[in-house]
Design a protein around this nucleic acid. Structure first.
Lengths: 344, 344
DNA sequence: ATTTTCCGAGCAATCGATTCCGCATTTAAG
DNA sequence: CTTAAATGCGGAATCGATTGCTCGGAAAAT
């Protein structure tokens, strides 16, 4: 009983052929008669032959496997990007190995090691929050192994990366609020050492300025963008400037935290205060009213990153120039910001 | 320049030793002098030697890799389970290959093939919704390859599986509602061809009966548990039995859909209608009031499934008996169901 | 001093598929 | 009808690490 596996050698024996012929018959490469090919394929089918990927990979020096390192798998964003990555890779016939760094630079390093020894042909990385220097990625570059960063990328020009144009997204969101007639737009910002948060804040300021609105520091509050911090931020802002008529937060979660505070203060959404967030999390469709937000094109980011990586893998001498792709986010307008029927 | 990789052979040449000695030095297996071992390890370090996992795997017949097939990566549930799986596998020194079936039996089959040729040592599967027969998994069993199903499992006694005790979770939820003084508890159920939904419905009936409450078919509505269907279900239920004082839904999303309907009908939550859902999705903390729900122990399910699988992998002749683990869900009580201060 | 152990290390086979090279045999060309 | 080209296939090396067997020499035992 051929329980475990049928090897090429077995097929060869059964058909009185040499292993090389079997290989050619199955791969379709090289010179082989149509007849033998049929015979081989048929027997392979019958015996339920399954090639040993490891052996082929070893010989060919190509594992057909890509590695991914994400800070964590759960949570909307990375899960969706992963979906895109897996999808793109599968389509191209590649397998995907997934590692979590758990936001730890140490883990990230170990993950990298794991993937390298696993002989992946390319690596996709979104940096952990605690990663300060990207020295450990130098090995990868030195090895000439394709490497693409996404979303959380190092600020170096010589690496390939896929990022979202946070600035544009935020700018559009704020401009939209202005277009709705809001004049005192508050901002709940994120940690300014993260460039994505910095960009969103910058866009907020620039959009105000471009439309002749004054910048009021009492309308800005920075926090960690969690639910409770969003709540607290809103309380602070309401206290600092009760006149505010809109809030743009760097994050949907912060908006979710802000909503009950506004409601408790007797403000109607969106009539009294318009709201816009960032990320297009699933729950933005579950709030009342639904949240206006900025979609981050998660899946597309994943697919794009894979495409970039596979392009690099394909270029033989790996002499590619680093490429940077900036995805344009999409403003998703929902009820929370529509003041069309505003009373004034 | 040793750009790409240093092989064991190279180390051997440089140290005037044989490859076998190098291998022993690095692995610590076999007889070797402390001195040579040190020398080898040092040089390995200097040359940044990285073992070729493929070669070792091929020779040893052990890939140290596990395969996972999930219907999709995104969405709270599977992402969280995946997190647990990755975590458990990494701890045990295994890599994880992830595939999505996209809820298609065809894809699932292909994924299986991919994983088999990749020589994974074990496979974790959560079935796609369109998978009617599990014939394709027969190969795996015949190959004697460890296989563990989780969450969406086939109804066969001879397979290993990790599932949640949906019945218990639902029972507790309903009992909790009864404990809050509710007497006319409605149920928004899911497709009854899914056993998880069937179990939740069954628990609902049993809990009512156990507490001497009548079963009223006007209080039950089945749908696909999406947001809009939840909304519609609620409308139907309110119409069929305006007296209802609680809703237990087989799903958090359905509850989210029901909330605005109740509110629009002038019912206060939880004072007039208490709510309980199922899954403990993240957004249950974002609604007002926060949702009472049943936690599915996602990460634990992932870790448990991996542990089961690795146990099977470890047993040499793979003569394990199929094991089934039933995880106990946890009722998470929040505001949406607390009628302590109910007016009566 | 001689025999027995034991230790450290090398040789070579092996895992399974791929691929370069070369040998027949057939087919086409001159 | 001979020479050249093309075709079909086998042989054997190879990818890199592992491992059973062997062997020389040193240490221990007699």
């Amino acid at each position: 009983m051929n329980l475990s596996r049928a090897s090429i050698a077995e097929l060869a024996t059964k058909l009185n052929l040499s292993p090389s012929t079997i290989s050619r018959a199955l791969s379709g490469q090289g010179r082989i008669s149509e007849e033998t090919r049929q015979r081989v394929r048929q027997l392979a089918q019958e015996l339920n032959y399954q090639p040993n990927h490891l052996a082929a990979a070893l010989r060919k020096g190509r594992s057909n496997t890509l590695g991914v390192i994400v800070p964590h798998i759960d949570g909307d964003f990375f899960a969706r990007v992963l979906k895109g990555i897996e999808h793109g890779a599968t389509q191209a016939g590649f397998n995907v190995m997934v590692c979590q760094s758990n936001e730890s630079a140490g883990h990230e390093k170990k993950n990298l090691d794991t993937l390298l020894t696993a002989q992946v042909e390319g690596i996709l990385v979104s940096l952990s929050l605690t990663t300060k220097d990207v020295q450990h990625f130098e090995d990868v570059r030195r090895r000439d192994l394709p490497l693409v960063f996404f979303d959380r990328v190092p600020e170096l020009p010589q690496v390939s990366a896929v990022v979202l144009d946070d600035y544009q997204g935020a700018y559009q969101a704020v401009e939209h609020l202005i277009g709705q007639g809001c004049r005192r737009i508050a901002h709940i910002g994120g940690p300014q050492h993260l460039n994505i948060c910095r960009n969103r804040y910058r866009a907020y300021r620039d959009a105000l300025q471009a439309h002749g609105l004054p910048y009021d520091e009492h309308l800005v509050h920075f926090c960690d963008l969690t639910l409770p911090e969003g709540r607290q931020a809103m309380e602070t802002l309401l206290h600092q400037n009760p006149q505010l008529d809109a809030v743009f937060a760097a994050n949907d979660l912060a908006v979710a935290g802000a909503m009950p505070v506004l409601r408790a203060a007797g403000r109607r959404i969106p009539q009294d205060v318009a709201l816009a967030g960032f990320s297009n999390e699933l729950f933005t469709l579950l709030t009342e009213p639904h949240l206006t937000t900025v979609d981050q094109r998660c899946e597309e980011m994943g697919r794009t990153a894979v495409r970039l990586l596979l392009d690099m893998v394909a270029e033989q001498p790996h002499q590619y120039a680093p490429r940077r792709v900036v995805l344009q986010p999409e403003l998703v307008i929902r009820e929370s910001s529509q003041q069309a029927g505003r009373r004034g």
